[in-house]
Amino acid sequence: MGIDLPLGRDAAAVRRRIEAMEHVLERSFVIPGINRPVGLDAIVGLIPVAGDIITMAMGAYIVWEARNLDMPKWKLWRMAGNVAFDSVVGAVPVVGDAFDFLFRSNTRNLGIVRRHLDRHHPETRIIEQ
């Protein structure tokens, strides 16, 4: 596929894996006409029950990877709360599908991880163009 993700537990490797998962879940495709990026979270979430469970598990993977960075427990709980909130509201038929399109818990969690890494592991910082 051309994606080469590192396997280590170092901060740079974890950051790249979390960024890749967030991209897949939140920004994989662009909806033509409105140029709105969507990912598997919104698409798979259209499948009743199973889709919400799958996207919740994928969001929980980001929290698990953040645990490998020895992040404070309160940040991990906040990230888990984002995933849980997204999953609970996303499970509501029709309204939840629209909510998944607008509320990006994985992007929020990536922001928490990035702020932590930029402060505690500045060597992992990537200058975005």
Rank of each mutant, 00 (worst) to 15 (best):
A11C: 13
A42H: 12
R27M: 11
R119C: 02
D52L: 09
A50C: 14
V24N: 13
F29R: 05
R16E: 06
V24D: 10
S105N: 04
G51A: 12
V30L: 13
W77D: 12
P32F: 13
R119N: 05
F99G: 00
N109I: 03
D4T: 15
R36N: 08
G81S: 10
R9S: 09
E19M: 14
A42P: 06
L117F: 02
G111Q: 02
Q129M: 14
V49K: 10
R78P: 06
A57L: 14
R119Q: 10
A11K: 03
F103A: 04
A66E: 02
I62W: 00
I43E: 05
R125Y: 00
G2R: 13
R114Q: 13
G81C: 06
L46M: 15
P93R: 14
G51H: 02
V24G: 08
E123N: 04
W77K: 15
E26T: 08
F29E: 06
A91R: 06
W64K: 06
D97G: 11
V83M: 02
A91E: 05
W77S: 13
M56Q: 04
V38Q: 10
L102D: 11
A50D: 08
L25D: 02
V94E: 05
M71C: 04
A11W: 01
A11Q: 01
F99N: 00
H23C: 03
G59K: 01
G96K: 01
L102Y: 14
R119W: 10
A42E: 12
P48Q: 10
A91K: 00
A66W: 06
I34V: 13
G45D: 07
A13R: 07
T107G: 09
M56P: 03
W64V: 06
A42D: 15
H116Q: 10
L5C: 11
A57K: 07
M21T: 10
V30S: 08
N106H: 06
F85R: 01
R104C: 01
V89C: 06
A91M: 12
F85I: 12
R15N: 09
V63N: 00
A66I: 04
V30Q: 08
G96L: 04
P6N: 10
I112Y: 03
D52R: 08
F103K: 02
A11M: 08
T124P: 01
K75N: 07
V49E: 12
D118S: 14
D52M: 08
R108Y: 07
P32A: 07
G59Y: 02
G45S: 02
V24H: 11
T107Q: 11
D70E: 15
E128G: 09
L110C: 08
M58L: 14
R36C: 05
R115N: 12
L25Q: 06
K75H: 10
I127K: 13
G51P: 04
R104F: 05
P6H: 09
D97N: 12
I112A: 02
V38M: 04
Q129C: 15
R114S: 10
K75Y: 09
N82Y: 13
P122L: 01
G111H: 03
P72Q: 08
A20R: 08
S28A: 14
E128M: 13
